[in-house]
Design a protein around this nucleic acid. Structure first.
Length: 315
DNA sequence: CAGACGTGGGT
DNA sequence: TACCCAAGTCT
């Protein structure tokens, strides 16, 4: 096999979205071949990965997948794609419809973000999802990860795609740590860039490492016996030392404003039109917390108060 | 930059 | 049963 094709001169700044000087970053990546081979045999058959998948379906999937498992996204994504096959179709609806059809995916502000994305794409990009990383980053709800993912998966761009799966795989395989740092560091970005293959393979490398993290190199119980890079894995070679950093804080959801907001919004989603405040009052005992949560929903644009004191999803 | 922001399934 | 955590982003 020709190994020289795995040596590149690339711009680190360019990969970070800032075109500037050039620097040699990638030597050969020993993880590339085993990971690509594993992916070819084990990739899940997800609809947004279909060869003909457009940038809009991919963007929608990426936003829906933020902090949400694939299994729960699938049915909602399918419904959205039938209902709103283009940004223009979604942009023509009131934002409340996006929230209604978000269902119980969680973090409903993402529905609002997607709706705002659709309108921005229609207004600023002639209805087409932009291919440029910086333009993607400027869209609401699109951060560093999502911009890189869409630029890579939809437009075949060469970007370091650093999600929680990739960060975990690299932390283990390369850094010898059980878990990556809590927040993405410059060192992690530099490492990801240094492992980037050439333009032909960069997109499949990105999705393949993600898939490996999702299916094999999992957070809780990694399946090292099935891992294509276990022989090179620094963490396994070191005897799988336990994570020694600060404890990652637990969440505790019961009784929080988040739970309260979820209950209130569920009422609005299920209602046909506006609902009397009494219908909201019954879903949460604590009136002070309930009012605070309701105000929060309104100020976040997830709910509207009408002149008669009733509430509804934003029109 | 730590904390807010939903929800449900796996262990 | 609790607790962990899942393709993050924004403030």
């Amino acid at each position: 096999m020709d190994t020289t094709r795995r040596v590149y001169t690339v711009s680190t700044a360019e990969a970070a979205g800032v075109p500037h000087y050039r620097q040699e970053v990638a030597k050969s990546n020993p993880l590339l071949d085993p990971v690509l081979e594993w992916y070819a045999a084990n990739a899940r058959d997800l609809p947004w990965r279909a060869p003909g998948a457009g940038a809009w379906p991919i963007l929608v999937s990426e936003i829906m997948l933020q902090q949400t498992p694939v299994a729960r996204v699938l049915p909602v994504w399918t419904e959205w794609m039938e209902r709103w096959p283009t940004p223009a179709a979604l942009a023509a609806e009131p934002p409340g419809e996006a929230v209604r059809h978000w269902g119980r995916l969680g973090y409903p502000r993402r529905a609002l973000n997607l709706h705002a994305c659709a309108r921005a794409i229609v207004e600023r990009h002639d209805g087409e999802v932009p291919a440029d990383h910086a333009a993607l980053l400027a869209l609401p709800g699109v951060g560093e990860y999502t911009a890189a993912a869409v630029a890579s998966f939809a437009f075949r761009g060469r970007h370091a795609v650093l999600d929680t799966n990739v960060r975990r795989v690299l932390a283990r395989a390369v850094s010898g740590e059980q878990y990556p740092p809590k927040a993405t560091t410059a060192a992690e970005r530099a490492l990801a860039v240094s492992l980037l293959p050439g333009p032909e393979e960069a997109p499949v490398w990105a999705v393949a490492v993600m898939e490996l993290g999702a299916l094999v190199c999992t957070a809780r119980a990694p399946r090292c016996a099935e891992c294509p890079i276990s022989a090179e894995c620094a963490w396994r070679l070191a005897g799988k030392p336990a994570y020694d950093g600060p404890a990652r804080r637990g969440q505790t959801y019961d009784g929080t404003d988040r739970q309260c907001r979820g209950r209130l919004l569920a009422v609005l989603r299920q209602a046909h039109g506006a609902v009397p405040k009494a219908a909201l009052d019954v879903v949460w005992e604590d009136a002070v917390q309930r009012e605070r949560a309701l105000d929060g929903l309104v100020s976040d644009g997830l709910a509207e108060v009408l002149d008669d004191g009733t509430y509804r999803l934003p029109a």
